[in-house]
Design a binder for these strands. Structure first.
Length: 428
RNA sequence: GGAGAGGUCGCUUAGCGGUCUAGAGCGGAUGUCUUGAAAACAUCUAAGAAUGAAAGUUCUUCGCGAGUUCGAAUCUCGCCCUCUCCGCCA
């Protein structure tokens, strides 16, 4: 949620920012409702004051006149109070439709206006025509989308054998590093309540069909998280941090569930875009003045993972039109995918400034003054896409794959014919 | 899933229609005393909003919402959550 005072004082900026995010709001209209709301609340407050004065004046049995007066007051108050509530609902709905404002540094425009910040590593030249991850994965019997489709439908897959072990290795690798960086490891719940989804700011209007709801019979439905962030950020809802406890950092592991509505026909092959994937995710709660520093830290760690894995990548800054509703800035890491001959998103690092903390009421205490924290999130590993990058970038002509050295210590010692320095193709 | 108990200021709790501007204890902060500390004593110790230069004043919030009433922490209903016992279960 945007600070209402920000809207009152800079209506033009808000209008422009929403436009840059391709979100249609009418700030003047909202200000009109806000004015009505302020006037009405004043009326209601006055009436309540009158009522309080009246009740304070009667200590024992009230007189007939007093009761009469009270009745009249009560009626008036009820009427005005209802009107006030209605206006508030209207205002709240409008306020919830206002997206977070992009930072000044964010390029304005649609998705084509993204900025490439830097490139690291050179795409490898292959002496043979590189296969894509699905061909490699099926050859090694570590990815199975056919059976995924049989059991769950399109865009579902099984990760098997060394593929499964590779996932565990990546999780452990990321966790180890991030724990050293001051992140608390956490396995969050993957079903969340509806009210939480609203407060996070992802389930608004046009985005509402991106996530799954889960039937809970007589109870209100749950939502399946789209990323660990959805369950970790609201952990501290309605809480006040002590200044000394910030920054508060979490590294969470969870599955992520996405309906991928509107992506029919896009990235249908393999496991690049699936309805369920696992992810190691970073979340930080920081003081506003430390936000910049934290963003750099999260990006730095994410980059270091890719460097350690020896994968070529580029860093891009998303344009305003591409930012998620609560994001003020998003930096992506795109990793080289030889089969597509291009970089594809594997990491996304966003700052939501105080947007989520306002909705969720998460503050910190500075010498008695309560201020909203800033919240950042970033991918450590989107496991599926990382596995794709490893398979494709480290493939050999015989269909086997050399696994980056750094992961070796996280893979169990070879037995039963498994060789972890490389994954060998299945003998047919 | 069945039965019961309960959600009040950081923690433990009092409160059972007007005396609640919510009391007490613990914890915390500051001060007095002390070489320093402890103890003791004193004061302070929830959040949000309106107005105001400020001091202050007022309003809201006793899990959330609706209702009864001149008046609700207190009564009624619905919802959310927690705990205990039983059942089921990895």
């Amino acid at each position: 949620m945007i600070d209402i005072n920000l809207i009152r004082n800079n209506p033009k900026d808000i209008q422009k920012a929403a436009k840059n995010k391709n979100i249609d709001i009418n700030v003047d209209h909202i200000l009109g409702i806000d004015k009505k709301y302020k006037e009405l609340s004043l009326v209601v407050q006055k009436l309540r004051e009158e009522r309080n004065v009246l009740t304070d004046s009667m200590k024992g049995e009230p007189s007939k006149e007093q009761i009469e007066k009270g009745k009249i007051l009560k009626e008036k108050l009820e009427k005005e109070d209802h009107a006030l509530k209605a206006v508030w609902e209207e205002l709240k709905e409008k306020l919830y439709q206002i997206p977070n404002l992009p930072l000044k540094t964010v390029p304005i425009g649609d998705s084509s206006k993204f900025k490439i910040i830097k490139k690291v590593g050179m795409p490898k030249k292959f002496s043979f025509i590189p296969k894509d991850h699905l061909e490699i994965g099926e050859g090694l019997d570590i990815i199975d989308v056919k059976r995924g489709a049989k059991v769950s439908g399109t865009r579902f897959a099984y990760l098997k054998n060394e593929g499964a072990l590779l996932e565990l290795a990546l999780i452990q690798f990321a966790m180890d590093r991030l724990i050293k960086e001051g992140f608390s490891p956490i396995f969050p719940p993957m079903l969340i309540r509806h009210e939480i989804t609203e407060e996070l700011g992802y389930w608004n209007a046009e985005n509402s069909n991106n996530y799954y709801s889960v039937n809970n019979y007589e109870e209100p439905p749950f939502y399946l998280i789209g990323t660990a962030e959805h369950a970790i950020v609201p952990m501290h809802k309605d809480e006040i941090f002590e200044e000394k406890d910030l920054p508060k950092r979490y590294v969470g592991f969870s599955s992520a569930f996405r309906r991928e509505a509107g992506t029919y026909g896009k990235d249908t092959r393999g496991i690049l875009r699936v309805h369920q994937f696992d992810k190691v995710e970073m979340v930080s709660f920081v003081k506003p003045q430390n936000e910049e520093k934290e963003r750099k830290k999260i990006l730095f760690v994410a980059e270091s993972f890719m460097q350690d894995l020896g994968l070529p990548y580029q860093i891009t800054q998303l344009a305003s039109g591409d930012l998620a509703f609560p994001s003020a800035e998003t930096i992506d890491i795109e990793t080289w995918m030889p089969s597509q001959n291009k970089y594809r998103e594997t990491h996304s690092i966003s700052t939501t400034t105080d947007f989520q903390s306002r909705r969720l009421n998460i503050k910190y205490n500075v010498n008695g003054e309560k201020k909203f924290v800033h919240i950042l999130n970033g991918t450590a590993f989107a496991i599926g896409r990382t596995i794709i990058s490893i398979l494709e970038n480290y493939q050999k002509s015989d269909g086997s794959v050399l696994i980056p050295k750094i992961l070796q210590k996280y893979l169990p010692a070879g037995k039963a014919g498994l060789h972890f320095e490389k994954i060998s193709p299945k003998k047919v």
